[in-house]
């Protein structure tokens, strides 16, 4: 489910900020029209001295140190669960040893592996989570 998330934040010391704002050299980055009868000034956090920061989130720390593009994006869709590829380990175990695998079993294994690779390529290998399957079945 897509939800609002608060992971990117900063806590500033207003005493330090007040001093900073009285500095006539301070410039704002842009004027923001909030479309509600109010306007704001936008400032760049990188312009502040370190003592202005009481605390910040991990994503803010990354952004301040490495730039905003370095912050990992939030997932916008559930992680996909793919059907596992045929297991060579299981094949060996089923036949009691690598040398004891029959040619028919090899042929089946290769065929299944090829089919799995084709399903992945064609985006058909996703496993539907049980909760969604149950919901869909109920509908």
């Amino acid at each position: 489910m897509i939800r609002p998330i608060l992971r990117h934040w900063v806590l500033l010391d207003l005493d330090v900020l007040r001093l900073w704002l009285t500095d006539t050299r301070v410039r704002y980055a842009e004027i923001i029209d909030n479309h509600d009868g109010s306007w704001g000034l936008a400032f760049d956090l990188r312009w502040l001295e370190p003592e202005a920061f009481v605390a910040c989130s991990e994503t803010m720390r990354i952004a301040l140190e490495q730039g905003i593009d370095a912050v990992p994006p939030l997932p916008t869709a559930p992680p996909r669960i793919l059907r596992p590829a045929p297991s060579l380990q299981d094949l060996v175990a089923r036949h009691g040893g690598y040398d004891r695998i029959t040619s028919e079993a090899w042929a089946h294994f290769h065929s299944e592996t090829k089919r799995w690779m084709e399903d992945v390529r064609l985006d058909r290998a996703e496993v539907i989570p049980p909760t969604k399957a149950t919901k869909d079945d109920a509908a």
């Binding site: 609002p4 990117h8 900063v10 806590l11 939030l74 997932p75 869709a77």
Partner: peptide, 11 residues
Amino acid sequence: WFFYGHIEEGW
């Protein structure tokens, strides 16, 4: 103090 946060949307 001034708490300034960004609300994002994510899964």
